[in-house]
Structure formats: C-alpha cells, structure tokens
Write a protein that binds this DNA or RNA. Structure first.
Length: 574
RNA sequence: CGGGACGUAGCGCAGCCUGGUAGCGCACUUCGCUGGGGGUGAAGUGGUCGGAGGUUCGAAUCCUCUCGUCCCGACCA
C-alpha cells in the first residue's frame, strides 16, 4: 500500500471524550471514529487490524474442528420466548418491530438461533459432538458504553456453540476450546491468563474467562503466588480463617460516636484498626419464591468488601442485589446507615467468615451516634450463621491451599462455558441415542470479543509515541519511509523498487510516499504503531544502505541495500 | 437507571458571570521558502454557538423544556 493512496487519518490532539489510552490512540491513529454512543466506524487502518485478529481466531477455530457458519443478526422473538429469555433479558436487548408488527431483536448472543438450527439439522448421536461458530456483529444495549470499542454497544464477536450426547463429551470439547483459546491469545501476542469464572445466571458446571492483563481492566483477578490458580475476584473463595478466634479480653461498652458513619471515620475517632471493626450492610431480602421481601443484613469485617455475586446466591437475598434505602433501614432497625451493628439487630443476617472471627470488635449500636466496643460473638450476641460473602484481598490464602493471592486487573476477552441443557431442554433439542431413545443434547458455548481484543492489545502495547502492534495483528508489518520521495530521484527509484520486491516477497507494507516532512512521517507511523521501519534517504543511499528500526528499538541500524529483501523476509516474514 | 459535568468550525478550546457585528490554536486550500523528527511566511475556506420555546430593542450569553455526550456506581465478549 502506498500512503499517498491510503487514508492516514491521524490527529495530533486527543479527543476530549476518550478516557483510556487504547481509545485515545485508536482515535488519534485514525482507526476508529465514533458515530454515536457505543457505535464506531472502523476506518481502513483499523479494519486491517480487526481482520487480522479475526483471521487468527478463524484459523484456530478451524484447526480445532469447529465449523464456521453465519446466523442472522436480527432474530425473531418467538425463539427467545421459547427459551424464556424474551422476558428475562431486559433492556440490554434491542427490540425491533417489522412492518407487519412482528417482534424481533438485534441479537446480543445466539444460543436460541443455533439451538433451533441444530434441533432441525441433527437427528442422531452419530452426528455428535458438533461445534459451530461464527464471527459476527452483536448488539447489547449497555447501560454504560465506554472506553471506545472496549465496551461498545455494537461489537464483533466470535461465538461458538458445541453439542454433545453427554457431559464427558462436553468436557472434552471444553478442554479443546480452552487449549484453542490459549493458542489464539498466544498468537495474538497478548499477555493473558485463563481464570476461573463465575457461571452467573446461566448456571452450568464450569467456566473460564480469558483475561488480558492491563491496569485499565474492569475486572479484578486473584492469582496464587505458588500455583497456577487464577480466578475472577467475583468467583475466588475467601477461605475461613485457620486459627482459633481469640478469647474475649474486653467488656462490651457503648461509645459515643457523633456524626461518625463510615468505617474510616469510626476507626480514626476511636483509634482502632479497621480489622477490629465490623460493618453491617442492609440489602433487600427475598421470600421463598424469590420475590422481594423485607431486608437482610450482611456483616463484614470493616476492611473487607462485599462480594455481591456471592451474596446474591443466598436464597434469603433478593437478586439482583440491591442496597436498602435509608428509609427502609430506619423502619426496620431504627437508626441510620453507619450506625448499624449485629447486636440485637432484629433482622436476619449473614456473617462473613472473617467477621465471625474477630474478638473484642467495634460495631454500630443500632442507635444514631453510638457504637459498641469490646463486642464478642457467643457472649454478647449468638454465634452467627457464617458464609463467604466478601471479595478476596491481596495476601489471602489461595483457595487451592498453595501460597497467597495477589490481585491484578484484567480485560475479559474470552469466556468459555459448560452450558449443560438449559437451552436444549427448553427448546427441545434432541437426538436419538444408540438405543434409539430420545436424548437431550448437552451444550457448551465459547465467546471471544474480537473488537475488544484490538483495544486490549493497545492497552498492553504502547508508549508515549503511540501504539506498538504485535507483529501478528499490525495493520502493516513494515513501513518504508522515503525521505524526499518527490524530490530525490535516487530515493524514489530505490523506494519504488523495494516496494515492488517486498510486496512480491509477501511482506505487508506501507510505503510512505506522501509529500510530507520526515518528522510527520516518523510521527504518524509511530503513532499508528507499525512494528518495523525502513528509511530510504539520500544520506544512506550514498553508502548503498538503508536504515532499519524496530518500533521498540532505541536505535537505527544500517542495512546494505544488497540483500535487503532477504534480510527483511528473514526478520519478519511468515 | 441513580449521581456529576459538558455541548461554540473536522479536532482542542476561549467568549457566557456583567446581553450589543463569533474568536484562538491545530487541521484544510493556494503560493513561496525549507526538506532526516509534527518547519516557516503570505493569502484563504469553514460555524443558523446541540434543538425548541421564552424574556429583551437586541440572546452563544438570562430563563424553561428537550436532545446528545462523557465521567462515577449495579451487567458483560
């Protein structure tokens, strides 16, 4: 490609509405443009990257034996009504009505469609296992689109769905997909980790997320220092304390704490450690049928955070988890938020394992402006019902018993799921087994956020000049910068010749033949992030040489023109 | 959806408080010089100030409503 014939849409100034570095650089490098909230145009330069990611994903899915197909983005409501999700999906699903007033949605995912296809096409256990995938545009009407294509409403996703006669077969394919995902992210040049994930509302027996490690990530991942244990903090179990609870050493007494509500305020005021305090959060409760009913208290050590995913799993807790309002709390307990404590609380409570382990603790007195100190379980209040409802923190014991946990941030770029029979059952997707009996298929599903990968690769690979693409997904492998292309015959002839030869040798390159000053060309190509650069200029040509510099290199090196093409092919060819 | 902020040229912003001919930088066009790190001089193009209504002799500026965007909290590839 010649730069003079291409759209180099770089800009110097950072658009004001871009928060994270990948979003800023994608805009500045002329890869995307925003059309509306969560909707982006991929400019030619950006699309090249997206396609390269897509192709690697496709190659590895094909290698794993999955079959590519393409399903409609717009889907009829009937199938979603059949699975029950038409009513449960909520506002995230974009709903449409056609001219005949029939209802459709723009697919946020394709379980219903693939299950419908498979139940119509597959009749025999002999056709199983089967794994189908597509690379296709999804639409999810996110509450809060942000960070450019990182969390867009419309995005490109690879989604795969496997079908099995039994769980063993599912587990085999799941393992193959786990391996395939690792191959994909390795080929993409990303620093990633597979981590245990919560199975969420879908249920099922197993799930891993694949995270690209980056400080800007929206997820927290817990890693063991001693083993390969890694889990989303949503999922990571906080082990119960292993020692005995210390014996009480203080009598319980009331402390005046006027206007002290937060743990931090109380800790500073009473001069105690946060680990010696308990905090009591009040959320909406649920009755036996899961309807909202009353309130329930969740008790945590002062320095710990509630894990909402864990808490939501208790049947007494209303899902989705919602904090009770100040009025609800006053009505139920008689004091404000910030003065609540477990002693004679009068509403049901679930106490975190670590909170139940503290002796002589400080907690709210259920009376405004007062806290209790020197409180002890089993003496001043009954031994509690305990559970794991907190987020793990740095330094906790690893749930696998090996080492302690460290916490890092991650961007979820893939998620694999053992679905089970949720959809095949509700949609009656069956085959005949070897005994001629009807058998409901078991399913797995496997997603990769293709467009999100582009952004996460930038989060991991950039410097103050711009993007530094991994070779595998760079929009161009090499840039050929011609100094004074329009004035120097020697430069132009050499550059044109090199361009032809390198193209013929299969190198994906862009020749910068624009009538720009050197600084502009350097700055543009560095911003865009082309990983390899050759400079052709009169200065080098006098010595029969050009200059090479890798995007991460500190210095140029002179390379003789003679044998240059072979040298480059050797260095960056496939 | 709750809380906060912002909408003025393609981009980044000033002007608004205290109403009186819409500005700056970048980008873009033409010409000159320059030519290995976003160079320079000259001359230009481009905006119904997000939209609607109101107050006023007069509104980018004041008031009301509305739409959009971004940031912080509950969901997900």
């Amino acid at each position: 490609m010649r730069a003079s014939q291409y759209l180099i849409a770089t800009v110097k100034e950072t658009p004001s509405d871009a928060e994270i570095v990948s979003h800023q650089l994608m805009l500045r490098a002329g890869m995307i443009r925003k059309l509306a909230s969560g909707l982006y145009t991929w400019l030619p330069m950006g699309l090249r990257i997206l396609r390269k990611v897509e192709n690697i994903v496709r190659e590895e899915m094909d290698r794993a034996g999955a079959l590519e197909l393409l399903m409609p983005a717009v889907q009829p409501a009937e199938l979603w009504q059949e699975s029950g999700r038409w009513d449960t999906m909520g506002a995230e699903m974009l709903r449409l009505t056609d001219r005949h007033n029939r209802e459709f949605c723009f697919g946020p995912t394709h379980e219903e469609i693939i299950t419908d296809m498979v139940r119509n096409e597959l009749r025999s256990y002999k056709q199983l296992p089967a794994n189908f995938y597509q690379i296709q545009t999804k639409f999810r009407d996110e509450r809060r689109p942000r960070f450019g294509v990182m969390r867009a409403r419309e995005f490109l996703m690879k989604d795969a769905y496997s079908f099995h006669l039994n769980d063993e077969s599912l587990k085999e394919t799941y393992a193959v997909m786990h391996e395939t995902y690792s191959r994909i992210f390795t080929r993409l040049g990303l620093d990633f980790r597979p981590v245990l994930a919560d199975t969420g509302a879908i249920g099922g027996s197993g799930s891993h997320e694949f995270h690209v490690l980056a400080d800007s990530g929206e997820d927290a991942i817990a890693f063991s220092t001693e083993s390969d244990y890694a889990a989303n903090v949503e999922k990571a179990e906080a082990l119960p304390p292993q020692d005995e609870r210390p014996a009480p050493s203080q009598d319980m007494s009331v402390a005046e704490t006027p206007q002290k509500h937060t743990i931090e305020e109380v800790v500073n005021f009473l001069k105690v450690e946060a680990t010696q305090t308990l905090k009591t959060l009040v959320v909406h409760g649920a009755d036996e049928s899961g309807e909202k009913e009353g309130v329930i208290a969740l008790v945590l050590r002062g320095d710990h955070e509630l894990n909402e995913i864990k808490a939501e799993k208790f049947s007494q807790v209303y899902a989705p988890l919602t904090m009770a309002s100040e009025e609800d709390i006053r009505a139920a307990i008689g004091c404000g938020i910030g003065s609540i404590g477990p002693v004679e609380l009068g509403i049901p409570m679930i106490v975190d394992r670590d909170a139940a382990f503290v002796a002589d603790f400080v907690c709210g007195a259920n009376e405004d402006g007062k806290h209790l100190v020197g409180v002890n379980w089993g003496r001043d209040l009954p031994e509690p019902e305990i559970a794991d409802i907190r987020n793990v923190v740095e330094g906790d014991k690893s749930p696998d018993g090996k080492g302690t946990l460290t916490i890092k941030r991650g961007i979820e770029v893939g998620h694999i799921f053992q679905l089970g029979q949720k959809y095949s059952e509700s949609m009656n997707a069956t085959v005949l087994d070897e005994n001629g009996k009807t058998a409901t298929m078991t399913m797995g599903c496997y997603g990769i956020g293709v467009s999100r990968i582009v952004a996460s690769a930038i989060e991991q690979n950039h410097d103050d000049k711009g993007i530094i693409w991994p070779d595998a997904i760079a929009p161009f492998q090499l840039t050929l910068l011609a100094m004074n292309y329009n004035k120097s015959d020697a430069v132009r002839e050499t550059a044109d010749k090199l361009y032809e030869e390198l193209t013929a040798a299969g190198i994906d390159l862009i020749l910068d033949d624009r009538n720009e000053r050197a600084g502009v060309m350097f700055a543009d190509m560095e911003l865009i992030g082309i990983p390899h650069r050759i400079v052709v200029g009169d200065r080098g040509l006098k010595n029969g040489a050009v200059e090479y510099k890798g995007r991460r290199d500190a210095d140029n090196q002179d390379i003789p023109l003679d044998g240059l093409v072979d040298w480059i092919v050797q260095k960056i060819g496939h």
